[in-house]
Amino acid sequence: MPDGMNTKTAMLEIADLYGFYGESHVLHGVSLEVRQGEVVTLLGRNGAGKTSTMRAIMGIMGKRTGSIRFQGTELIGMAQHRIPRLGIGYVPEERGIFSSLSVDENLTLPPVVKEGGMTVPQIHELFPNLRGRGSTQGTRLSGGEQQMLAIARILRTGATLILLDEPTEGLAPVIIEQIGVAVRALKQRGFTIVLVEQNFRFAATIADRHYVMEEGHVVDMIPNDQLHANMDKLHTYLGV
């Protein structure tokens, strides 16, 4: 289990990150920092580069330059499959549940990379909906359940940093509630979480700090306790 919550060492430091998909240049100097045990959100309009930032961390976008350090280790230049093995878990925006795998197979697919991951019973406690569904085809689950499965499967791996890309997108309020409970529980357990959210009301209930992205870089950082004071500014950023 990740320990030492609230220690103030930086777990993830991104400095001056540029990123490309083939010819198209999408990240223009992203810089941000996530401390151990923190929940940090990336806010921003569609196309601002939030997903791309996560993909850049995981090494699954074309070319990237600048620096991404995880617990002091530089990720740029590292072989793609080694990055998650440092203890980074990725929950993609499209959830990525495999249709040719059963729920159980989906759940146990990502290899355990570190000690201290959650056990399957613990995961079932966190997401009771997944209990007893093991042999169901992964994509037969409802959207909300698929989201839970996508989160659940990286909790087993012992990853200490979790990248959650829009976990509430397209879900009913009841389900969003459930996901919120789960994310808070994860924070309690000491996971460090980077959360992409469009829904900042949801984000505000969980996060410590918010980074605002626009056109491929970070334009602002707002601590959660100053969120109310900055509401107008935020509305302009997000165009709501």
């Binding site: 699954i60 499959h81 990055i83 495999f98």
Partner: peptide, 23 residues
């Protein structure tokens, strides 16, 4: 298990790679 990796990588190699498997 090996077969599960294979099926998963057939569907979405990028994501399987992002789980730390050398696709």
């Amino acid at each position: 298990k090996l077969g599960a990796y294979l099926r998963a990588a057939t569907e979405n190699p990028t994501l399987v790679q992002a789980f730390g498997i050398n696709v």
